[in-house]
Amino acid sequence: MRGRYNVTYLISKFQVSEFFLMGFPGIHSWQHWLSLPLALLYLLALSANILILIIINQETTLHQPMYHFLGILAVVDMSLATTIMPKILAILWFNAKTISLPECFAQMYVIHCFVAMESGIFVCMAIDRYVAICRPLHYPTIITESFVIKATVFMALRNSLTTIPVPVFAAQRHYCSQNQTEHCLCSNLGVTSLSCDDDRTVKSIYQLLLAWTLMGSDLGLIILSYALILHSVLKLNSAEAASKALSTCTSHLILILFFYTVIIVISITHSAAMTVPLVPVLLNVLHNVIPPALNPMVYALKNKELRQGFYKVLKLGMKGN
């Protein structure tokens, strides 16, 4: 018992106070060159989503539940990108690799929370499209402003509460010697691999089950919604009506497929013994910055009302100059 007490005392005594985020594994000598494309992606994400919000706010024809969800998605996307990109750019530009343990666990929580929130908004948008296409006569009474508010509040509470165990379990571990992680953000698996605890398995399994339950239930609801939409569209006698109905869902499906495919790939590459550790690290970073930059462009290209709003805002800007 005394020996165990001494070991515990030594572990707590030599607990590290900060982590070193080394950046992208295997390319430390030239990783600063990645700062330019990453900075451009970040600026594109901010400017495109701000433009989407301006268009939705100024155009009265876009004051509809579908566009309210799109505006919420824009806010979530900007928040997610801002959570990680300033620190990544500081690492690449100024070699600012240190991050305190509380800051690291806070970043871990916010990343998980916003990724889960984005998944939840995709569910809300899928339900919106299902009701609009399969129950068009009931759409005004089901998808109301009250529904948007309630769905958003529910998703915010669900994701903010269910993701708390991720940083809490990570913070409960002891980090007594190694404090350098081959990453440029505080990912859960990357940070917890530095701990010197022996009982990692149970908590790691719990966290993976939590993630798969949360994201898996969202993906299941989305698949069900679009399966019902497809079934309803195939029963339409008019090819033009079917084409119009499907075109409104295409942009959603493109973004949803990209979002969940990358999450699955990241999970597999992190769990497997990767010979090229750069792959999961790069994917993890890109997954947090490409969707925020991609989402507004896909919606603007596929949505006629948004395109018209963009042209109006652009013309007003040109007249003002």
Rank of each mutant, 00 (worst) to 15 (best):
11 I>F: 00
17 S>G: 09
20 F>K: 10
28 H>R: 13
30 W>E: 03
30 W>F: 14
32 H>F: 07
32 H>P: 01
33 W>H: 08
36 L>D: 05
38 L>V: 08
43 L>G: 15
50 I>E: 13
55 I>H: 02
59 E>Y: 04
62 L>W: 02
67 Y>N: 05
74 A>C: 03
75 V>A: 15
77 D>P: 01
79 S>W: 02
90 A>H: 12
92 L>R: 06
97 K>P: 06
102 P>M: 13
102 P>A: 05
103 E>D: 08
104 C>Q: 11
108 M>F: 06
111 I>L: 09
118 E>I: 14
119 S>Q: 11
120 G>Q: 05
122 F>V: 04
124 C>Q: 09
126 A>W: 09
127 I>V: 10
133 I>T: 13
148 V>P: 08
149 I>S: 10
151 A>C: 11
151 A>I: 07
153 V>P: 06
154 F>K: 08
164 I>F: 14
165 P>M: 04
169 F>H: 11
170 A>C: 11
172 Q>H: 08
172 Q>Y: 04
177 S>F: 13
183 H>G: 07
184 C>K: 03
186 C>V: 05
191 V>F: 04
194 L>V: 08
195 S>N: 07
197 D>T: 05
201 T>F: 12
203 K>I: 12
203 K>T: 15
204 S>L: 01
213 T>H: 10
223 I>Q: 07
227 A>Q: 02
227 A>E: 06
229 I>W: 00
230 L>G: 12
231 H>T: 07
244 K>P: 02
245 A>M: 07
248 T>I: 00
258 F>T: 04
260 Y>W: 11
261 T>G: 14
262 V>L: 12
264 I>D: 10
270 H>G: 00
271 S>N: 13
275 T>D: 14
277 P>Y: 06
279 V>G: 11
281 V>R: 10
284 N>M: 11
284 N>G: 15
287 H>P: 03
288 N>G: 15
292 P>R: 12
293 A>L: 06
293 A>K: 08
293 A>M: 04
294 L>R: 03
295 N>Y: 06
298 V>R: 11
300 A>R: 10
302 K>F: 13
304 K>G: 08
304 K>W: 09
305 E>P: 09
318 M>T: 13
